[in-house]
Amino acid sequence: MQHNNMFNYKNYRYFKWAVLVILVAFAAYLWFEPAVGHYGGSWLGYGLGTISAMMVFWMAWYGVRKRRYRSSGSTQGWLSAHIYLGTALTVLVTLHTGFRFGLNIHTFAYAMLLIVVVSGFFGNYAYMIYPRLMTENMGEDSLDGLLLRIAETDKLARQIALVMPDEINFTVDRACRETYIGTRLLEQLRGYQEDCPTEKAVKKLTVMGNELAPEQRKLYRELYSIMVRRQTLVKRVRQELMYRARLGIWLYFHVPFAIALITAMLVHIIAVFLYW
């Protein structure tokens, strides 16, 4: 099944645009050597700066555009342009600086831009990698469905464990009570629980079976398979949550830093004009 993703949208239309923008910017940079040398205050610098500032606002507008469902055109095109032109923006802004950096608001705004763009790159990476992995992990199941099935195994396992020796009962009960599934962000991003009680219970059960009376063996085998199923289910849920977290986490940098960028950029512009 072949169709366009956000990179090759309309046969790389915005990639071509981005390349064109970069080429034009470089050409201008090399062609015109302002008398004052390359820096933001030259007329070329102002030009590049004005274009860049407009592009920053346009980039930010994407956040609004993608939720304006009544607007015309396709969001996919906007995203494709957002990615390529956003990348081109770093080149434009770098040329705007004339490679003069310092410890000031101007360079701070530049740093913000780089953070935003780099977090965007991570977003691209996440969008390319995780959807496929998520589908492989979940198949047609939904998160709620899996959680329900875990609850079911809990019920079954506890019922059977009641007629088992105390040690087994205790292990199973603990596994059911103390297994956590991604409660904190870090845990979610990592995708596993250290010393997962369910995992430990399965390991323990493997050994404990040997001490059972023959009439308990059949039930034991059933319990064992239930716990193994529980382990797989828990693992899949954790994976799902991990993927979701990783798929979303970059936005928690991208968007706040973009707002910081716009603020810093406005301060930078005001400062430039105030201290003319």
């Binding site: 366009n4 993703n5 956000m6 009544r70 015309s72 055109g73 969001t75 996919q76």
Partner: peptide, 18 residues
């Protein structure tokens, strides 16, 4: 009733909906 057609497809940022 929406001139440019299905919003579900047009709202998809990554082109997954078709």
């Amino acid at each position: 009733d929406i001139p440019e057609g299905p919003v579900c497809v047009r709202a998809c940022p990554v082109g997954a909906a078709l």
